[in-house]
């Protein structure tokens, strides 16, 4: 039976999206760069030794400029900046992806429930979101860090929770427009239950805006995560988080620019790559730009 589908060449919605995405050169570039960063991040964790190559203090080699031995130079403790950047990639990626996964899961679920059922449920959920959304992520991170201790997980939670309302709003709006479609009424008319309708009809049709939002949010989550580390609220000090490295380098801006330049570039390239992917996903899923 599956064979039939292939013969007829029906690609479906996701096939179309993939085709549109492939046409977008910027998005493909972004995707390639992002894949490389992910690859590097994973390899660095396995190939570089945390104790000897990342955090070992080696004062004689402190603050060196670029050389063959240290392509990006060394920091004030004589640690190789390239190694630290490579190793630090996984922090940023983890923060970005996990925070967005948390907020997408919670936010979309709340938004879908609010949008589908409406009424009192909607009021309670959406007004709660309104209360959460104005809390600055920095403030929330301070609260979470002081409550659960400073760690990667509390940073993810802080960044994730702050973006929950954004996802709830997008999901709700999307569901509300899908809810009015005649095929939802038709599904009710053949006796489908609410759960069935939400899972089979509402979620697949309201997914595109949520996905676009999620891709875009990964980039901003990385930035927020790095800013929190920069302020000393995120990943604790010896760990080479990019934002934390920037903060360290700040005091050596006049003498050793490498310490701020390369972590800064790393953040910029990662965020740019993800934003390019996000743009590509948005364009590919936007029915108005199609054909």
């Amino acid at each position: 039976m599956k064979g039939l589908r292939k013969e007829r060449g029906s690609s479906g919605f996701w096939g179309e999206v993939l085709k549109e995405f492939k046409k977008n050169k910027g998005a493909v570039t972004g995707f390639i760069v992002f894949s490389l960063i992910v690859l590097v991040a994973v390899l660095a964790v396995f190939l570089l030794d945390y104790k000897t190559q990342i955090t070992k203090i080696n004062i004689p080699e402190a603050l060196q400029p670029s050389s063959w031995k240290h392509p990006f130079g060394t920091d004030q403790f004589g640690r190789d900046i390239l190694n630290r950047i490579l190793y630090g990639a996984h922090y940023s990626l983890l923060i970005g992806l996990c925070a967005v996964t948390i907020s997408t899961a919670i936010g979309s679920m709340l938004g879908i429930i609010a949008g589908y059922f409406g009424g009192l449920v909607e009021t309670i959920i959406m007004r709660t979101m309104d209360v959460i959304s104005p809390i600055p992520s920095v403030l929330l991170a301070i609260c979470i860090a002081s409550a659960f201790g400073q760690s990667l997980i509390s940073l993810m939670l802080a960044v994730g929770i702050v973006t929950v309302p954004a996802f709830a709003r997008v999901a709700r709006a999307s569901v509300m427009s899908v809810r009015e479609e005649e095929y939802i009424e038709a599904a009710k008319a053949i006796g489908a239950s609410d759960i069935n309708i939400i899972v089979k009809h509402v979620i697949p049709n309201s997914l595109p805006p949520i996905l676009v939002q999620a891709t875009m949010r990964v980039a901003s989550a990385i930035i927020v995560g790095s800013s929190l580390s920069f302020l000393g609220l995120g990943v604790p000090a010896p760990k080479p988080e990019w934002g934390g490295m920037l903060a360290q380098g700040r005091s050596f801006l006049n003498t050793s620019t490498n310490m701020t330049l390369y972590p800064g570039l790393a953040i910029m390239i990662t965020v740019l790559a993800i934003n390019l992917i996000g743009d590509g996903v948005r364009d590919a899923m936007d029915p108005k730009l199609k054909r």
């Binding site: 589908r5 029906s10 479906g12 005649e182 095929y183 009424e185 038709a186 053949i190 089979k200 049709n205």
Partner: peptide, 17 residues
């Protein structure tokens, strides 16, 4: 009871065969 809907363009879910 089953119902035939007025507008076939919108009565079908676009993401399923």
């Amino acid at each position: 009871v089953s119902m035939i809907f007025q507008d076939p363009m919108t009565a079908l879910n676009p993401v399923f065969t």
